[in-house]
């Protein structure tokens, strides 16, 4: 009898805990979104997303942030593309070619986890050093390289975690048809893990587009939309950063509007990507 009551109390307790923590998370998310909306929405305008800054924009005059929006999109897309070209083969190699070399694979995982833990400002400083060494000026290219290094461990580990879950029976059935390692990796494992790969890319895109520190020393800042990889470029996180530091309330409010734009971009890209790749979600083996 006592045991039964105890069980019921236990059950209730953990159910309550689960409910409370879920509620807390949702509330936190809502709170953040509401603050950005409340503070940023009043100064959000069509002008802001369709024009580059005119003289005196950062003192509250007319113009917009199109340069930073485009700059950020270029930067994050470039970094993710470079990241994908390295992270996909690497994570596939870890889980197909070298899957029986546990020592090697675990060493790689360990290094990646360390890299993941390094703050982005360090990557920014590192990128800066490399730039000086190679004689590259602050530019879109320098930013793309720095951000791609910074998001690489995130992408590899996100994909790796999913590929680790591929059932051995699936690998066996692919190999028993006479597939080579490369065929198993790209035709079977990559396809099976497609949802995870998409998640890894989106995660990296979000981190890359939102980071200030990695671009602080590397991209420069300009009012123009970049037309080549060697141009300097503005980015949204830096636009938020600069405007937030302004004493003018109008400009501060624009900082929140820029943050709002950033959030909407990430959201849109997530939704569109998931929509476009839904076909591949269905064929994955559960």
């Amino acid at each position: 009898m006592m045991r039964r009551i105890f069980k019921i109390i236990e059950e209730r307790f953990f159910y309550g805990l689960m409910l409370a923590s879920t509620a807390f998370l949702v509330a936190l998310l809502l709170f953040i979104v509401l603050i950005i909306l409340y503070k940023g929405l009043p100064s959000l305008s069509w002008e802001m997303v369709s024009q580059t800054p005119k003289g005196g924009y950062y003192f509250g005059r007319e113009g917009g942030l199109l340069n930073a929006i485009i700059g950020s999109l270029y930067l994050a897309t470039g970094a993710v593309v470079i990241g994908l070209f390295i992270s996909l083969p690497l994570s596939l190699a870890m889980n197909v070619y070298f899957r029986n070399n546990k020592k090697l694979v675990n060493a790689i995982r360990f290094v990646l986890d360390l890299l993941w833990g390094i703050p982005s400002i360090v990557y920014g400083a590192f990128g800066f050093t490399i730039m000086i060494y190679l004689g590259i000026k602050t530019s879109l290219l320098a930013g793309i390289i720095t951000v791609s290094i910074f998001i690489l461990p995130i992408m590899v580990r996100a994909m790796d975690e999913i590929m680790k879950q591929v059932p051995l029976t699936l690998l066996e059935s692919a190999f028993s048809l006479g597939s080579t390692n490369t065929e198993v990796a790209f035709k079977v494992v990559a396809r099976q893990c497609f949802p995870g790969i998409v998640t890894g890319v989106l995660l990296a895109f979000g981190r890359g587009i939102g980071d200030v520190a990695a671009v602080l020393f590397t991209t420069g800042y300009t009012d123009n939309i970049p037309t080549s990889l060697m141009d300097q470029t503005a980015t949204l996180p830096l636009a938020v950063f600069f405007q937030l530091g302004s004493p003018i309330p109008e400009v501060q409010s624009r900082a929140y509007a820029a943050a709002l734009i950033l959030t909407v971009i990430i959201l849109l890209i997530s939704v569109v990507t998931r929509f476009l790749s839904r076909r591949y979600y269905k064929t994955s083996i559960k």
Binding site: T169, L170, S173, A174, S176, R191, T283, I285
Partner: peptide, 21 residues
């Protein structure tokens, strides 16, 4: 090995379709 495996098709005990149509 791939040549050997192409000569000897194996049907596993637990059917394991590939993640495709």
């Amino acid at each position: 090995i791939t040549r050997i495996r192409k000569k000897m098709g194996l049907l596993s005990q637990k059917p394991s379709p590939l993640p495709m149509t």
